[in-house]
């Protein structure tokens, strides 16, 4: 297959621009990142700087990869990270636009790589249960119904890739934040810190420069793990509840 790529190139401290590259003789079974590998190998051989992009596990679980492809975070295929998107999903001969996540809270480091440490800051503010190693009771001492465990697992699947922020017109991190708040609010272990957690994580989210949620629903559509935006409603309830009870 042959493609024309329009790739965002940006050096640290400089303005970026779209640069055109030919991407020829690509196997239909290659993943999107393997297609970029091939382009990069040819760039290096030609003595040019390869396109910088983040990636690691290449099996859709580490959350390291992600670009906006033809306007869609992780590309047009739903429920898929960029590393799991395959070239057979594109039309032969088509033009593909590749850009980094765009958000004030995710500054571009180089080309397609952005700084997502703001997500870590949200978790640092309260995305945990404070339990010292070795002080836990027996695993079966806390029975949790299967429905609750399954619901918690549905949200715990978040891979922290940032597609929700990239897809949101407000660059809001509400889906990401609500996934962790929901997981811990659903489980009995999460109850003692439930109120302070919601408040602290929402504050950290705002401090990092993420926008507010205005119910566009783009986040849910872009999420490779298909996390529901119902969780945002739960986040709001947790946050308001915490503010009232305080």
């Amino acid at each position: 297959m042959n493609f024309t790529l329009k790739v965002w190139r940006q050096k640290p401290g400089e303005k970026g621009k779209l640069v055109t590259y030919d991407s020829k003789d690509i196997s239909a079974d290659a993943s999107f990142l393997e297609m970029l590998d091939v382009v990069n190998e040819r760039l290096i051989e030609a003595g040019q700087t390869p396109i910088a992009f983040d990636h690691d596990c290449r099996e859709g679980i580490c959350g390291m990869c992600g670009c906006v492809v033809n306007g869609f975070a992780h590309g047009h295929q739903s429920g898929t990270t960029l590393c799991q998107l395959h070239m057979r999903e594109f039309k032969d001969g088509s033009v593909i636009y590749i850009e980094p996540w765009r958000s004030k809270a995710f500054p571009v480091i180089a080309d397609l790589i952005v700084d997502r440490s703001a997500f870590d800051a949200i978790i640092t503010a309260g995305g945990y249960i404070s339990i010292r190693t070795g002080s836990a009771p027996d695993g079966n001492a806390i029975p949790i119904s299967k429905d609750v465990a399954d619901a918690a697992m549905d949200v715990a699947e978040c891979i922290g890739c940032g597609a929700c922020v990239a897809a949101c017109p407000n660059a809001s991190a509400m889906l990401f934040t609500s996934a962790k708040i929901s997981q811990l609010a659903l489980l009995p272990q999460g109850q003692p810190e439930r109120m302070t957690r919601a408040q602290r994580m929402v504050r950290a989210m705002e401090d990092a420069g993420f926008g507010a949620c205005t119910n566009h629903g783009e986040c849910e559509a872009a999420c490779p793990k298909e996390i529901s935006m119902n969780n945002i409603a739960r986040l709001n309830r947790e946050f308001i509840g915490a503010s009232v009870k305080k």
Binding site: Y128, I129, I131, T133, G134, S135, A136, P137, D138, G139, I142, A149, D150, A152, M153, A156, Q183, L184, L187, Q189, G190
Partner: peptide, 10 residues
């Protein structure tokens, strides 16, 4: 035990 207490949804 530790992982359950941390909220790992086994």
């Amino acid at each position: 035990d530790q992982c359950v207490a941390q909220g790992v949804p086994f």
